[in-house]
Measured scan of single mutants.
Amino acid sequence: TTYYDVLGVKPNATQEELKKAYRKLALKYHPDKNPNEGEKFKQISQAYEVLSDAKKRELYDKGGE
């Protein structure tokens, strides 16, 4: 599973699309609303952290993490 899959976006997604997808999923899986989905929330946050940063995203796209 790639970070793009976690957020449900395509690899060519814009920053705005990433932000929108992250917010939607973060609300859905937030531990306050969904106590059993803490791990999913962490995955979503990690994916967004990497993909929202241009340098980290470039490194990730080249095969790094």
Results as ranks from 00 to 15, higher is better:
residue 52 S to G: 10
residue 59 L to H: 10
residue 32 D to N: 14
residue 17 E to S: 05
residue 18 L to D: 00
residue 50 V to Y: 06
residue 48 Y to L: 03
residue 40 K to Q: 07
residue 56 K to W: 08
residue 15 Q to G: 10
residue 44 I to L: 10
residue 21 A to G: 03
residue 62 K to R: 11
residue 18 L to S: 00
residue 25 L to S: 03
residue 50 V to Q: 04
residue 42 K to M: 07
residue 58 E to S: 06
residue 9 V to Q: 03
residue 32 D to T: 11
residue 22 Y to H: 03
residue 17 E to Y: 02
residue 60 Y to E: 03
residue 53 D to W: 02
residue 34 N to R: 07
residue 44 I to Q: 01
residue 2 T to G: 06
residue 41 F to K: 02
residue 29 Y to H: 06
residue 28 K to C: 09
residue 48 Y to Q: 00
residue 15 Q to P: 11
residue 61 D to N: 04
residue 58 E to C: 09
residue 51 L to I: 04
residue 23 R to P: 01
residue 61 D to M: 03
residue 17 E to P: 00
residue 45 S to R: 14
residue 11 P to W: 10
residue 3 Y to E: 01
residue 47 A to S: 02
residue 3 Y to N: 02
residue 5 D to F: 05
residue 23 R to L: 15
residue 42 K to G: 09
residue 4 Y to R: 01
residue 2 T to N: 12
residue 11 P to T: 09
residue 50 V to I: 14
residue 64 G to L: 15
residue 9 V to R: 01
residue 64 G to Y: 15
residue 13 A to D: 03
residue 63 G to W: 14
residue 64 G to E: 13
residue 55 K to V: 15
residue 39 E to C: 10
residue 41 F to E: 01
residue 12 N to K: 05
residue 21 A to E: 05
residue 56 K to Y: 07
residue 36 N to P: 07
residue 35 P to Y: 06
residue 44 I to G: 01
residue 36 N to T: 12
residue 44 I to C: 03
residue 28 K to S: 09
residue 22 Y to K: 01
residue 26 A to D: 02
residue 32 D to L: 12
residue 38 G to L: 14
residue 14 T to S: 14
residue 12 N to G: 07
residue 5 D to G: 06
residue 21 A to W: 01
residue 36 N to A: 12
residue 14 T to W: 01
residue 15 Q to L: 15
residue 40 K to M: 11
residue 59 L to E: 15
residue 58 E to Y: 09
residue 8 G to W: 03
residue 9 V to K: 01
residue 1 T to N: 11
residue 39 E to L: 11
residue 50 V to M: 05
residue 64 G to Q: 15
residue 23 R to I: 15
residue 42 K to T: 07
residue 53 D to N: 06
residue 35 P to M: 06
residue 2 T to H: 06
residue 12 N to I: 06
residue 60 Y to F: 03
residue 37 E to S: 15
residue 34 N to F: 07
residue 41 F to C: 05
residue 43 Q to E: 13
residue 16 E to N: 10
residue 4 Y to M: 01
residue 13 A to T: 05
residue 12 N to C: 12
residue 22 Y to T: 01
residue 16 E to I: 08
residue 22 Y to G: 01
residue 18 L to V: 14
residue 32 D to V: 09
residue 65 E to Y: 15
residue 61 D to V: 02
residue 42 K to Y: 08
residue 32 D to F: 12
residue 8 G to V: 03
residue 61 D to G: 03
residue 64 G to W: 15
residue 21 A to F: 02
residue 63 G to Y: 15
residue 7 L to R: 00
residue 33 K to C: 12
residue 20 K to H: 10
residue 10 K to F: 09
residue 4 Y to S: 02
residue 1 T to K: 14
residue 57 R to Q: 03
residue 43 Q to C: 10
residue 33 K to S: 10
residue 21 A to V: 05
residue 60 Y to A: 02
residue 27 L to H: 14
residue 12 N to A: 07
residue 45 S to I: 12
residue 38 G to M: 14
residue 12 N to E: 07
residue 37 E to T: 12
residue 7 L to S: 00
residue 2 T to F: 08
residue 35 P to K: 13
